[in-house]
Write a protein that binds this DNA or RNA. Structure first.
Lengths: 343, 343
DNA sequence: ATATTGAATGCAAACGTTTGAAAAAATTTA
DNA sequence: TAAATTTTTTCAAACGTTTGCATTCAATAT
């Protein structure tokens, strides 16, 4: 019966033997519409479940009220916190977020950006994929710039682009973490590093190295092993570290997951934490406060990053024409817990 | 200089002194277009970065290639796994997922659904919010049904609606978990329950109760305490349980987070796991395999759910007209690890 | 009775693209 | 060289909505 075709303004116009304009105005409470007409039309519209076709409006106004969020993954606490932050600011302003997960793939990232532009997305928040980083291809971003669509980098940035970016101060967070371990008297501090090439990995690595150097410790190659951020990826590296002839007495993990993996391995070997080995993670994920022992970590204000990024977007929007590119770097904060608190 | 207005087909037509139709056909490799014309136009289009306006196409074809995914949260492993599953199937088919996070709010859920319909989304995957559940208002769903937009329930379902749904067999998973604890000789099994009213909570709770009853154990009110799925929310309840005069010797948590919270509390009290107290979670989140001791849990095939839900959507699409509503229930699987393996 | 006002409604264009049918241009055939 | 054919291009409508301007119609003032 009920044809599935959505009711349009024309359908209503036909029903009332009036023009579409009248219906449009009636529905939008335009003053120059007879009170009765207005009421009747509005009532009927409600009855038949009329819903304005936003697609046509988008075409007409060249506004879609849609923003793209392109991220490598949503499987970590941090990323979802960022999205929550974006959401908290932008949703109330009427924006819809289009969340695209690139899964670290350059091709997907490119495709998503292209699609977002085709869909006339009004702004793009981007955390570039690892493949993009590795390959160094950035033409797909040129597109975005050329079209003057506001582009905001989140965390993983590409330095050569003139645009706004919001990042956490990974460097000083890592530095503080290692410094804390040194203060606690640890002498051989290993690092379970993130994938090569990513800003996040490299900045934390740099903080680690610089801190060791500052305090006169050597940076020992064999104490630095790569992981892919995931807990499983830390197991073998941690084992390798702890089975060395002169094993480290502390491990700084590139994130909490990795540190928790190392914690498990240490416990399996009967090591006491923090007495025999100190552990520090990064992210301050909810679980890190409730491991046993609880994990010392570096807080990364994901929600705040999302909110700051929103702010950057909005200011770029208002400053149409004049560039107004800002770089926001939010401080990270060392959170000392049991896993490193040696007394 | 470069005006920020996107290049349109008309602009190109003007440049070549031809009609928009010619340009359109040239760009789409229509056979009835002169080879030279085609080449020139395509080259020029590439040069100026022409990108088809998908909005106008959506209006014309009444197809948006967009699907809505409305979920209460994306902060858990499971939800992101579901989204990954949806993504894996639907992205290659050209669909864009519009992920909407309701944050358990009825109002937001309603608003999102309305917006998705207005945007002519071609299908909606919905896991209803807790408020919706509590309130019992479902008119906002009637809208979707009335518009014949395919609607697929994920996990949190509302039984009265005629539509497809994909859920995990929470009941039998919980049953198996508790049965396992009983087999291991635990006598007083407590339950850290999820929020009231949610299918997920209630099904697991029912599995817990039925299993106890089957094995002749009483269901003791004081051993059942609510949580909100989050690790923090388990701390006080777990403490209350373990400080009872006759405390439980096992705890079944509604999810891994909650179980890990209980694990922490138990350890703080100096209890040995699994000797003094057995623990079981639910979800098989990545971390659960690497806690110390590792956590017995129930696997919830999130990615598979996403893939099955996609399948349900596609079959509903093809069977346009004739209803073809299916309910898929995927089995959950007990994964026995150290936290309950008492020998 | 006519001009003047005011309220209510309709017309037509616009947003960017596609597409069947018609028209125009180029080519071949008789 | 005209007719027939083929190739190439243009026209116009459509998708659903909004909006400045024109129009209609009734009521009031002169």
């Amino acid at each position: 019966m009920n044809s599935s075709r959505p009711v349009t303004i024309k359908d209503i116009a036909k029903r009332f033997r009036c023009s579409p304009s009248t219906v449009s105005r009636a529905l939008n409470d335009h003053p120059a519409i007879n009170e009765d007409t207005r009421k009747n039309i509005q009532e009927y519209a409600r009855e038949v479940g009329y819903q304005r076709n936003e697609v046509s409006l988008s075409l007409l106004n060249k506004k879609t009220a849609t923003l793209g969020v392109v991220v490598p993954t949503i499987s970590n606490y941090y990323e979802t916190a960022v999205i929550e932050g974006l959401h908290n600011v932008l949703q109330p302003m009427g924006y819809t977020l289009n969340i695209c997960v690139t899964n670290e793939s350059y091709l997907l990232e490119k495709e998503y950006l292209s699609k977002l532009l085709s869909n006339r997305t009004e702004g793009i928040f981007l955390s570039v994929s690892q493949e993009t980083y590795d390959s160094g291809y950035y033409e797909h971003l040129e597109q975005v710039i050329q079209r003057k669509t506001p582009l905001i980098f989140i965390d993983r940035e590409y330095e050569d682009f003139e645009t706004s970016r919001a990042t956490v101060d990974d460097y000083h967070g890592a530095f503080a973490a290692v410094e804390h371990l040194i203060n606690m008297g640890y002498k051989q501090i290993a690092h379970l590093k993130g994938p090569n090439g990513l800003t996040v990995s490299e900045q934390r690595f740099k903080g680690y190295k610089d801190c060791l150097t500052k305090y006169g410790f050597p940076v020992r190659e064999e104490l630095i092993i790569n992981t892919n951020f995931r807990v499983e990826s830390a197991i073998l590296p941690a084992r390798r570290l702890l089975e060395m002839d002169s094993p480290p007495d502390a491990i700084f993990g590139v994130n909490d997951q990795v540190a928790i993996g190392a914690m498990r391995v240490a416990k399996d070997k009967g090591l006491r934490i923090p007495q025999d080995i100190g552990l520090v993670g990064f992210d301050n994920s909810p679980i890190s406060a409730y491991t046993f022992p609880s994990l010392t970590t570096v807080n990364r204000p994901g929600r705040k990053i999302g909110m700051e990024a929103s702010r950057l977007f909005l200011s770029q929007l208002n400053a149409s024409g004049d560039f107004s590119h800002e770089s926001i770097v939010l401080p990270s904060e060392l959170i000392i817990r049991e896993s490193s608190l040696r007394v």
